[in-house]
Simulated assay, not measured.
Amino acid sequence: MIGALATAGCGANPAPPGPAAASSQRPPAPPSASPSPSRQGIAVPSVAPITPQKQQNIYGDLPVYERQVLWKLEDRTLRQAGANGSLLGSCDQRIDGSAAVTTTCTITFDGLAVPFSVTAGAGGAYAQWRATQTSGPLIRTAVHAAWYRYVSANAPGATGTAMCDARMPERSLVNFSSPFYECWYTADGATVVRSVRLTEAAGVTFA
């Protein structure tokens, strides 16, 4: 992210194949990253899409430059989370535009700390800054909402079978694009499994 002061930016060894006639009647096994064929899941309820709402923090005691950075990082965290929650930011060093600085800024989402490495230049209103991160907030309610939408779009008649990994905590900090949990549904006698991933730009995705 680059910005400026005013406009910042499952498995076990497989069983031997059965007779050809039997195997030809079975659909191909869906891809799965699960280390075990036995998945413990919880049903995903019918949920409406979540539109995160942000309540702006004032940060009145901070320089305008630093406020702009924190506001943009709040927006980014909220987009990745895909859920509503409290937000509060802070930076380890002051960012006021008077001198270049590289520091860590942290946005806390409902008690979950999301760190960013921020490099800000000097130059007052024209100073440029960028923020990088390697991990983000994975929120269970957001995953469930996104999975329900996914199943609704890809197999509308299977929403009643939508499940997600029961191990998924209410909230956690995860590395981008790394599969940690799974969601699945059953359609036409086959179980379709997808890995849950978090991306920097789009938040929750399935692969």
Rank of each mutant, 00 (worst) to 15 (best):
S36I: 06
A122R: 12
P63W: 09
P49V: 00
Y65F: 14
A162D: 10
T119W: 08
D75M: 03
A99T: 02
W129R: 11
Q128L: 05
S38E: 01
Q40T: 12
M163F: 04
N84R: 14
E170F: 01
S152M: 01
A100N: 05
A125C: 08
A48P: 01
Y148G: 00
N175R: 07
S90Y: 04
Q40I: 03
K54Q: 13
V143D: 09
D96T: 04
V151E: 14
G89Q: 12
S46E: 10
V174S: 08
G157T: 13
I58K: 09
V47Q: 09
A120E: 02
G157R: 08
A158M: 14
T51Y: 06
Y150F: 12
Q68C: 10
L70D: 00
N175L: 10
G111C: 12
A142Y: 00
P45D: 08
D92L: 12
A122E: 03
R39Q: 14
Y65C: 10
R171Q: 11
C164K: 05
R67A: 09
L88A: 12
G89N: 10
A142S: 15
T132H: 06
S152R: 11
A131V: 03
F176H: 05
T141M: 05
Q68Y: 07
Y148A: 09
L78Q: 05
W71R: 06
V114L: 13
A100G: 08
P137A: 15
I42Q: 07
A127V: 02
S117Q: 11
I107L: 06
F109S: 05
I107Y: 02
T119L: 15
R140L: 06
Q80D: 05
A99K: 11
G60Y: 01
Q40N: 13
C105M: 13
R67C: 03
A166E: 01
V114S: 14
D75F: 03
H144W: 11
E170D: 14
R79P: 11
S178V: 15
V64S: 12
Q133D: 04
I42C: 08
Q80R: 15
I42M: 11
P156V: 09
S90N: 02
D92F: 01
A146N: 15
K72F: 08
A166M: 11
Q68S: 13
P37I: 10
P115Y: 00
V69D: 07
V44Y: 00
Y59R: 15
M163E: 09
T119N: 12
V143R: 01
A127G: 03
